[in-house]
Design a binder for these strands. Structure first.
Lengths: 232, 232
DNA sequence: GCAAAAGTGTTACCGGTACACCCATGT
DNA sequence: ACATGGGTGTACCGGTAACACTTTTGC
């Protein structure tokens, strides 16, 4: 680092508040949803916000994001990925805060509902988001792009769907993520060619008379297969 | 942010040193190269380092990276992209520094050679890098992946090659980026189908008797075409 | 029997791959 | 004439897209 060529102490450089903000994706009723929190004070009181928190001395940003998620939805072992940083000096009217956006995928049936309710949080369909504070809408936009990229390169669903699910559900999830309609027949064929799912004997009869077989993800075998799922 | 629900001042949270580190890619003599700087003092004296710097109060991280690049190679308007953050509390033995890795693409014939020389910097082929300080090798690994991803989705070269170049040069650039051999004939065909290049009347005769036509990138027209160039 | 969702089949086409081949020219 | 890098042509194969079709079952 150039700035340290003349010195072996960093003390004459500025320090900054560093935060993480989590874009929490869930999937429910054929909708991709985000978990948002109401801001309780001015400025921007009443606007909604991503869940976030400041990075502490003894933790990495990833650890901070995990801590926030655990505090927020009561879950460990959540799928989490960095999106990008947001660091405009004016982005937060309350002070100069550098923030790293993360996206998380959680099974909407699995989080701690009481904990979430206590925080006043609410699941919003990604197609109908309320006004958001600061640059949070921008963070969400970036996070969705990242989710789409991820979903195009590997099969997502394990992190968002229940343990057992139908191909129709998975199909609808992809429709929701990409906000377009994939051909149902071709999507099924693609899935079966990937050979990543196991069909169970049971059927889900809640949506049709005939019933749809339940599937679950195969126990992760061998190395990561980088399969193209759908085109971007 | 959860931590601020009880307060409208951030003052009781920790502040941190925040830095940027730049993975500077160049292309020369059929090699993808990185610009590295020698560390002049202990610990890790003699090891090589990415060029970096601390983020100041009045600038975003992107701006900090641009400032560092301008200071380093004397160029503005460099292609720059965030890679990801590195924030392990122990990553820098000199103090707790949160760093954002960036990658930059520059035309190796264009930078300020004297400025670079004055800093003691050196271009290293990406296949033969020296030992690096801290987590910089990791940053480079991540940056290369990002460059590969970028190069697979759009045609890179404008940022790395001279104004005029031959298809063979571009082919070699892709070979260098992906560290594999693409079929020459197919690569040319792909390029011509993309219709992104203009062939010039002049030829480069330095490498063959027959001579190879020079090409240049078409003046950027219409919207970004998201073309798949090569498979990952 | 009919509607509605689940699931299969058919076909055309496009793009990638491998590889053989031709071209231009300095020595 | 021939070696060398530049450049073109061809044949095959697999994935994708569009869409028609069959299956199952509750009503």
């Amino acid at each position: 680092m150039i700035d340290i060529l003349d010195s072996n102490s960093y003390n004459h450089f500025s320090k900054h508040f560093v935060a993480v903000d989590c874009v929490i994706f869930g999937y429910e009723e054929d909708n991709l949803k985000l978990l948002l929190y109401p801001r309780g004070f001015e400025p921007s009181q009443g606007k909604w916000s991503l869940m976030g928190g400041f990075v502490r001395d003894n933790e990495s940003m990833d650890q901070a994001a995990r801590r926030v998620l655990n505090f927020t939805v009561g879950l460990d072992n959540i799928y989490l990925e960095q999106v990008r940083s947001f660091s405009d000096p004016e982005r937060d009217p309350g002070g100069r805060v550098i923030s790293m956006a993360y996206f998380a995928l959680i099974r909407i049936d699995q989080y701690d509902k009481e904990l979430v309710r206590n925080h006043g949080a609410h699941w919003w369909p990604i197609t109908k988001l309320p006004p958001l504070i600061f640059d949070h809408a921008n963070m969400i936009e970036n996070a969705l792009e990242r989710l789409q990229r991820k979903a195009s390169l590997e099969l997502v669903g394990k992190e968002l769907l229940p343990e057992m699910f139908t191909l129709t559900q998975l199909h609808n999830l992809y429709n929701a993520i990409f906000q377009k309609q994939f051909d149902a027949g071709n999507f099924r064929k693609k899935l079966s060619s990937l050979n990543l799912l196991d069909r169970l004997p049971e059927k889900d009869t809640s949506n049709s008379k005939r019933g749809a077989y339940y599937y679950k993800f195969k126990y992760k075998t061998s190395t990561d297969n980088i399969d193209r799922i759908v085109k971007l």
